[in-house]
Design a protein around this nucleic acid. Structure first.
Length: 892
DNA sequence: ACCGCCGGGTGCC
DNA sequence: ACCGCCGGGTGCC
């Protein structure tokens, strides 16, 4: 019940109590179910046609709509008068009326059976006080089109399939076009000085970001696409209007490239912008001499006059002090806290005395970050908060974490991880994080929540806060879809409800509508600040980064290696050729990946192959089948292909493999199965084989990658290893202080590389995904150390650690094998080519000549082009492009 | 007149 | 609702 109430608030500023006739809770639950459930995606839907219908009963409800406004159609199966009822609501969820009975009966069948989704636009608005027309458009899967149109026609409602609805739509879009620049009026150019409590001077672009962030938190302009029309506020995209000023998003997305100081800027924001633009009152640790010149007339004693004959500060006492510091005169209450030998005083700024109780209720900023960057946050607070300032930062992590709401909300900053938050959320009533009204929430690497089905995302969405920020170097990774969750988190109305997002942004964009793309851009620009490493302020680059050169070093295979490679290639090519001819490439995707994988391993080192070749025969028993599937799952995940789940189009989380060997996130495929099962047997979204929940195979928990360390007696080299060692030895001669990253997707290759490194007396450390957080931090510290005996080389698994890792001690990067996704490589390079790098960065990519690796590089290039075009690639595009990729890789 | 016509009452689902 | 529909009152022109 708690959840229901909260969601109601989340869906829009709905007044629960104005109209007793409205069954608001039920209505909104349905809207929200539509928003959260994996309804047939807008981008997969086709228009069946449209129909002019009638909305009746207007006089019974308070919801008002304008000419051209979009309305929501919600089934009301519980309606006492008619179980076919379809209610009409505006964007805030206020009921406008009902669909006329006969039409509602027909629509109810179509809607309840998920044959189509119906959307409405009211061409005339509520002129008439009794009824009004509504333009209904039916959307759904192609295969349901005929069924729906026939059914509706039989009931006497013939869908019009020639397009006059587009007139309505384009009218709306042109309408919004006029206001395109309104949201951009807010200048991003101003600079703001940070509060004194920030110990590190900000760079100009960081002051700019601070200024922008403060403005976003404090100013109360209208959100994008809203304008004032007389007494009302009007949304030009949905044509919705409201009496109350639409709540502005207090926060946004800081999407600067990594290395530009998002963390520092955020710390500055926390210290600089408390309530009403005033700095956060913080405890100051000052010595007696500095803090108060005892005779100063500025100091007014207000309590318990200290006995001057004794130690002046022997007992707790309070002073009222006026200081002309911090640009403004501030009255401070000083409290002596006797436990610290350095004479600690607690300063409470004037604001905290005068402020209303309401403001005081929220003082804490909650920072949620991936585990890998937790320590970075703590370091940065340590580093950037002025040493005289005692900021209360609490790390909410570990089993001994303090779960007291009172304690947490008295902190200045609480830091936690997505996992902890998500774990707490699973028992929501007990989650202290969900019981606090935060001043501000900061999501570090906020793109983590872009899959709305993920438990973590739900946990994040359910937090209460006045201000919300997303920090992310890559806010859009795959498609426009990624953005929805971010906007929902920011409570960007009305797009936090999925239907309006789909109708106004997502569908127009996926259909290639230019105005749709414009609107999206406007929307994003309004709430996002993004600078890249190459951006400039006043004609100067933001940061001075040393030059970076990337060179490809071709590796020639030895004769034996070449022979083995060609053998494997021909065999694989025949298999894939057969799949292509049969049209079963996707059905045999795991096999295809296995073939490619083997070729890629051949290019690196023959010993990589040993294990994966142990293909079991045609296993007949379920146990054997399971074993093989686990093996394939391992293969798919280890292949570094950045496998994405075809349901959420995101990289797989909680991977499971189907019997047809396709990998999905467990929640995603479970949802697909439960939805499809209702009418039919569930089918694999990729190859249409029948699938069952009970047959999903996941990675066994106990499965720990047992390193069959190739013992050094049997150790042999390979052409690629030789190429690397040649470079490393040369570099060591040139300058022994140079540090290198040696990167591979195959952790077993890293293990193999340990042999020649030891042989040649290199000191090295290793960082891969299997290491505990503690070990990681230690390894990074060791490597970053400038001590003479510190490691010169880091063996790094491509995906380890994720973004945010700081490896600036290295200036040379060796990418041992190409990745499918060039962004992964870029991210990896950026770990050393970032703020703090003093040397020129040299990146060497090893590519085996005449091999699958060369083909991969070609495809990479193609994908980057695609990424630059940004939007538009649909799911089916992806599938065909993937098959094309495979063909190209095998030169078919 | 087991009709038509008139005019008042009435009105979502 | 300046409608449609219902049902009661009414009944040549």
């Amino acid at each position: 019940m708690l959840m229901v109430q909260y969601l109601v608030i989340g869906a829009g500023e709905v007044d629960l109590f104005t109209d007793p006739h409205e069954n608001t809770t039920e209505t909104l639950l349905q809207l929200l179910r539509a928003a959260v459930s994996p309804e047939p995606e807008a981008d997969g839907s086709v228009l069946f046609g449209h129909l002019r219908g009638t909305v009746v009963g207007l006089r019974y409800y308070t919801g008002v709509v304008n000419r051209g406004e979009m309305v929501g159609l919600v089934r009301q199966p519980q309606n006492q008068h008619d179980r076919n009822a379809v209610m009409v609501a505006n964007i805030y969820g206020n009921q406008v009326g009902h669909i006329k009975r006969e039409l509602a009966a027909a629509m109810a069948y179509v809607m309840d059976n998920n044959l189509a989704k119906v959307e409405g636009v009211v061409p005339s608005g509520t002129n008439n006080s009794f009824t009004m027309p509504v333009m209904l458009s039916f959307w759904g899967k192609e295969e349901h089109k005929a069924t729906v149109n026939e059914f509706m026609a039989r009931r006497g409602f013939k869908l019009n399939t020639s397009g006059n609805l587009h007139i309505v739509l384009s009218f709306q879009l042109r309408n919004s076009f006029d206001n395109l620049f309104e949201g951009l009026m807010e200048s991003k150019d101003g600079e703001k000085e940070a509060a004194k409590a920030v110990g590190t001077p900000l760079l100009p672009h960081q002051k700019q970001a601070l200024s922008w962030m403060c403005a976003r938190e404090n100013k109360s302009g209208l959100p994008p696409f809203w304008e004032k029309r007389g007494e009302l506020y009007y949304n030009s995209l949905t044509c919705f209007s409201a009496k109350e000023i639409p709540e502005r998003v207090r926060g946004g997305i800081l999407a600067d490239d990594m290395g530009l100081g998002k963390t520092l800027t955020t710390i500055a924001l926390i210290l600089t912008n408390f309530h009403q633009g005033k700095p956060l009152p913080v405890e100051k640790c000052v010595s007696v001499v500095e803090g108060i010149s005892g005779d100063s007339s500025d100091v007014m004693e207000i309590m318990d006059k200290p006995d001057k004959s004794k130690n002046r500060f022997s007992s707790p006492c309070f002073y009222l002090v006026c200081l002309s510091d911090l640009n403004t005169t501030v009255i401070l209450v000083l409290q002596y806290t006797p436990m610290n030998k350095h004479q600690m005083y607690k300063f409470c700024a004037e604001s905290s005395i005068i402020e209303s109780a309401e403001d005081l209720s929220a003082r804490t900023t909650l920072i949620i970050a991936p585990l890998s960057v937790l320590s970075n946050w703590l370091d940065q607070f340590e580093q950037h908060v002025h040493p005289d300032v005692k900021l209360n930062v609490y790390l909410y992590y570990g089993s001994a974490r303090n779960r007291s709401k009172k304690f947490l909300s008295s902190q200045d900053v609480v830091i936690t991880t997505y996992n902890v938050l998500s774990a707490d959320f699973s028992c929501k009533s007990k989650s202290p994080l969900h019981g606090i009204d935060w001043l501000r929430i900061v999501l570090d690497e906020g793109h983590i929540i872009r899959n709305p089905n993920a438990q973590t995302s739900k946990a994040v969405l359910d937090l209460k806060a006045q201000r919300r920020w997303i920090l992310s170097g890559t806010p859009i990774q795959n498609s426009v879809k990624d953005l929805w969750m971010l906007l929902a988190f920011l409570r960007l109305k009305p797009f936090d409800v999925r239907e309006w997002w789909n109708r106004v942004i997502q569908r127009p964009v996926t259909l290639g509508d230019r105005a749709g793309v414009q609107n999206l851009q406007t929307l994003v620009k309004c709430i996002t600040l993004r600078r890249t490493k190459t951006s400039e302020v006043n004609g100067r680059p933001l940061v001075f980064l040393p030059e970076k050169t990337v060179c490809v070093e071709q590796v020639e295979l030895s004769r034996t290696e070449r022979e083995e490679y060609e053998l494997a290639r021909n065999e694989g090519r025949n298999t894939i050729r057969r799949y292509v001819a049969e049209g079963t490439v996707l059905r045999n995707y795991a096999d295809v990946l296995a073939i490619l994988m083997r070729l890629r391993q051949h290019c690196c080192h023959p010993d990589l192959l040993a294990k994966t070749l142990s293909e079991l025969g045609a296993g007949a028993t379920p146990a054997e089948l399971r074993e093989r599937l686990i093996e394939k799952l391992r293969l798919v995940l280890a292949s570094g292909s950045d496998e994405e789940c075809s349901v959420c189009l995101d990289s797989v989380q909680l991977p499971v493999i189907t019997h047809c060997a396709h990998v999905y996130c467990r929640p995603c495929i479970a949802q697909v199965i439960s939805t499809e099962q209702v009418h039919d047997t569930a089918r694999c979204p990729l190859c249409r084989s029948e699938i069952k929940t009970s047959e999903l195979v996941e990675f066994p928990q106990e499965e720990v990658e047992e390193e069959n360390t190739p013992n050094s007696e049997k150790w042999r080299t390979s052409s690629k290893v030789q190429a690397l060692m040649g470079n490393l030895l040369r570099l060591r001669c040139e300058d022994s202080s140079i540090k290198c990253l040696v990167v591979s997707q195959f952790t077993r290759f890293l293990t193999i590389l340990e042999n020649p490194l030891r042989e040649h007396g290199f000191t090295f450390v290793r960082l891969d995904g299997t290491m505990s957080q503690k070990k990681r931090t230690r390894v990074i510290q060791e490597f970053q150390s400038t001590a003479a005996d510190s490691p010169a080389i880091m063996l790094l698994s491509l995906k380890a650690g994720g973004v945010g890792l700081n490896l600036t001690a290295a200036s040379h990067v060796f990418l041992m094998d190409p990745a499918w996704n060039p962004a992964t490589e870029e991210q990896c390079i950026d770990r050393c080519h970032r703020l703090g790098q003093k040397r020129k960065v040299v990146v060497t990519k090893f590519i085996v000549k005449d091999s699958v690796e060369e083909k991969m590089v070609e495809i990479q290039r193609g994908k980057q082009d695609l990424v630059e075009k940004a939007f538009g690639s649909t799911n089916s595009d992806r599938k065909t492009s993937r098959i094309d990729d495979i063909k190209a890789l095998m030169e078919l």
